[in-house]
Simulated scan of single mutants.
Amino acid sequence: MKINSVIVFITLLAITAGMSLGGLGADLRCHCIQTESKPIGRHIQKIQLIPASSHCSDTEIIATLKQTGQEVCLDTKAPWVKKVIAKILANKNR
């Protein structure tokens, strides 16, 4: 009986700790499941760069579209995306 109580307590503690990390804004997984590789540059309002971390080994690029406000994950290997990122980094270093 004591062993079952300890197991239940540890399980509840682990679940609660995981929920509190999510509530604090800690990202526990990658944001992007699918990525877009076709050029949509003229439709982009803003771009968010999320570096790789312990929770997601991929660098993620999320674009917000002008007309709809929809967020689209971009393919980091697409040539046009590389150009956009290079332009952003060049402007940042000025």
Rank of each mutant, 00 (worst) to 15 (best):
V8L: 13
V8S: 10
V8Q: 07
V8C: 09
V8A: 14
F9G: 08
L12W: 09
L12V: 13
L12P: 06
L13T: 13
A14W: 07
I15Y: 12
I15H: 11
T16I: 08
T16Y: 15
A17M: 07
A17C: 13
G18Q: 03
G18P: 09
G18N: 12
M19Y: 14
S20K: 02
S20F: 14
L21N: 11
L21T: 06
G22W: 04
G23D: 04
L24W: 15
L24H: 15
G25I: 00
A26L: 08
A26Q: 08
A26W: 14
A26R: 05
D27I: 01
L28M: 10
L28S: 11
R29F: 11
C30E: 00
C30A: 00
C30M: 00
C32D: 07
Q34L: 09
T35S: 11
E36H: 14
S37D: 13
K38R: 12
K38Q: 13
K38F: 14
K38W: 12
P39Q: 04
R42N: 14
R42A: 13
R42H: 13
H43I: 00
H43E: 09
I44P: 15
I44S: 05
Q45H: 15
Q45R: 13
Q45Y: 14
Q45K: 14
K46H: 09
I47D: 07
Q48I: 09
L49I: 15
I50P: 01
I50A: 02
P51V: 04
A52R: 05
A52W: 01
S53A: 04
S53H: 01
S54R: 10
S54D: 14
S54A: 12
C56G: 11
C56K: 04
D58T: 07
T59C: 05
T59Y: 05
E60M: 02
I61K: 00
I62Q: 10
I62P: 10
I62G: 04
A63C: 06
A63M: 02
A63N: 02
A63T: 08
T64Q: 09
L65F: 04
K66M: 08
K66W: 06
K66E: 08
Q67C: 01
Q67P: 03
T68P: 02
Q70S: 12
Q70E: 15
E71V: 03
C73F: 11
D75H: 03
D75L: 01
D75C: 06
K77I: 00
A78I: 00
P79S: 02
P79R: 00
W80G: 07
V81G: 07
V81Q: 01
K82E: 06
K82Q: 12
K82V: 07
K83E: 10
K83Q: 10
K83V: 09
K83H: 09
V84K: 00
I85L: 08
I85E: 05
A86F: 03
I88S: 05
L89R: 06
L89M: 04
A90M: 02
